[in-house]
Design a protein around this nucleic acid. Structure first.
Lengths: 346, 346
DNA sequence: TCCTTCGACTGGAACGATCCAAGCCGGACG
DNA sequence: CGTCCGGCTTGGATCGTTCCAGTCGAAGGA
């Protein structure tokens, strides 16, 4: 009398369970469990017998049961925000892929969730309370990050992609890319190319990231004894702002090169140059930030600071497995250095 | 003697369980379960009492336990492939966000996994056998799709984003965007603008999607009694190919407009025009496909066929809940019509 | 010989939810 | 007044795994 739910052929055959494997291998359930999780506990001959049974039945542990027993889901929650329309930002795509890939190697999967963009906490609470994820990767830390503080009080494991700007010595784990170093790299590259009047177009002053990137430009200029006065502009992150800011700068300070806080702004500069009949890369150099697809396909190719997102993912997963390990390792803070993708615009 | 694992304050307090709620409300576990899943079975006063207890304790059902019992995870698996470097393709980002959003409304979460790009089946099997996901969304159907056939034999619920080109009457559920209609829309738009010699740059003949889009161009041309001979080119999906193909076409057929199978190819056309000192939109019109970020920020704005990805996501989730419902609804096939995002290039 | 130690394996309990069959209770009916 | 019925409620079993406390037999020491 097999139960009415298992009629092979009609209903998809139920996947084999530990008990099925145990029966086939002539051992107990626990032994099969050990064969899977602690193979060194078994005598070699028993181990191979069990492994054969596993292979023959195509057994794979049931996630739900394992999760229930171990109180962990081996899932990492990531709030997925799409790139804004009309900008060149495309970090998420590359980052998410790297994260998925790296997580897999560490035995984790990535669970996406969404939330009201106006409420940074939306979504986190439910997943946590229903024990749906083991940890979070928090990405949108650009304006303070209430998420981090909230997760800390909830004692929920998480790693932030982005520094806690509002509280630099916050103890939680984070991984970030040194935007200042990136812009310094870009500026130095331009100086080496012979440029002296290098302008900066960045974001409004309340953007920590923007100010950080700007500091890289300042640092490089100062290091080479070059003046920065009158050469900086701070605007919204749109193509249009980049265009008008560069037009003003060209009129007032006649720079021979631009370093921008984003590819979006850099595109604005390219627009201005085109309007004025000046060739990017020959007449005026332009460097963007993020190495977006736009930078790669636009003429003549936009030199851009490229974040090492693959390595960011590796470090994040490393930090996560530290937090979730037994015993847990203390949270780490990692700052990575970006590279410069050289193209025709410089 | 509370067990050693629950020392409030030191260890994060364990989330409340069904039993905790039951005790507080003075009812049995089953009653609480009913309050959550079948509230209409309870007497109104009992219901409110239970709901108060739930609210006070902040109870949320444990996912693992629920999954184990109901043999479903409320997770949808999606194999996440990143956009290729050097192209303008950016469909995934927008689509994934829409999917996450729509799934949430239907009570599902999206689980990302990755796989060897050379092995289209990698990843699916493990998730299925370990009952980690309830269903899949299959996206990369551009060259036949072994995934679909394989999932069918496994009787695994899935919805494809993309038609089964190699087997048009395959019974599985799919949602797709009518690329032919999109290119017809684009071509007709150009014809209305007065263009007569409109060239096509598409993908190699073995691309079903490419041939479908091309058919839209042909259809519009024929409908207006315009010749197509010598006006079509089929190449790889790279900016470089688009550039050289358009150069050849300009030399040999002198078209006044281009319709391209992708924004990447359209960017190639823009490059050629710029090299030759001809202004896109004024001298020669260009239309791309996908409404990528590139199309949005490049000068003078690239007119492009925009896939209704938000609606695709809605239809996919609709189809999924059909497949997973009780009783399941038969698989649906849905073809959506894209729109045209008008910009300066046409 | 007997006791201890140790490695290999076993059976029962538990994780926290849902399904199932049975129980309780008040009202209607004979 | 007893019985039946239907609406609510209940306790027990169950999903498939891992944890825990043991059992068993062989080896080693006194």
């Amino acid at each position: 009398m097999s139960g009415p739910t298992r009629i092979p052929g009609r209903v998809p055959a139920a996947p084999p369970t530990l008990a099925d494997v145990a029966e086939r291998a002539g051992v107990s359930r626990q032994t099969v469990s050990n064969a899977v999780n602690n193979p060194e506990l078994l005598r070699p001959d028993t181990l191979t017998r069990v492994q054969e049974a596993i292979a023959e039945l195509g057994y794979l542990p049931n996630r739900a049961a394992r999760n229930l027993r171990t109180r962990s889901s081996h899932l990492i929650g990531l709030r997925f925000s799409p790139a804004q329309e009309g900008t060149a930002n495309a970090t998420m795509d590359r980052f998410v892929h790297s994260l998925v890939e790296t997580s897999r190697e560490a035995g984790y999967h990535v669970l996406l969730f969404s939330g009201d963009p106006r409420d940074p906490l939306a979504g986190y609470d439910d997943l946590l309370r229903s024990t749906a994820v083991d940890a979070f990767v928090v990405t949108d830390t650009y304006l303070g990050n209430p998420q981090a503080r909230w997760l800390e009080t909830r004692r929920a494991p998480f790693v932030a992609f982005g520094r806690p700007w509002d509280k630099p010595d916050a103890p939680h784990a984070w991984v970030d890319v040194d935007g200042a170093a990136g812009c310094e790299l870009a500026t130095t590259h331009l100086i080496e190319r012979g440029h002296r009047r290098i302008a900066w177009i960045g974001w409004r002053k309340d953007s920590w990231i923007g100010e950080d990137r700007r500091a890289g430009w300042t640092r490089a200029m100062r290091a080479h004894g070059l003046a920065t006065t009158g050469l900086a502009s701070r605007v919204e992150d749109t193509v249009h702002s980049g265009r008008s800011a560069s037009a003003v700068l060209l009129d007032e300070a006649d720079p021979t090169a631009f370093v921008c806080a984003s590819d979006t702004l850099a595109m604005g500069v390219l627009h201005t140059l085109e309007e004025r009949g000046r060739t990017p890369g020959r007449d005026v150099a332009v460097v963007g930030f993020d190495d977006s697809q736009v930078a790669q396909v636009v003429r003549p190719g936009l030199t851009s600071v490229r974040q090492p997102l693959e390595q960011v993912a590796v470090e994040i997963v490393e930090a996560l497995s530290g937090l979730l390990g037994h015993p847990p390792r203390p949270p780490r803070q990692v700052l990575l250095t970006p590279t410069l993708a050289l193209r025709g615009s410089s």
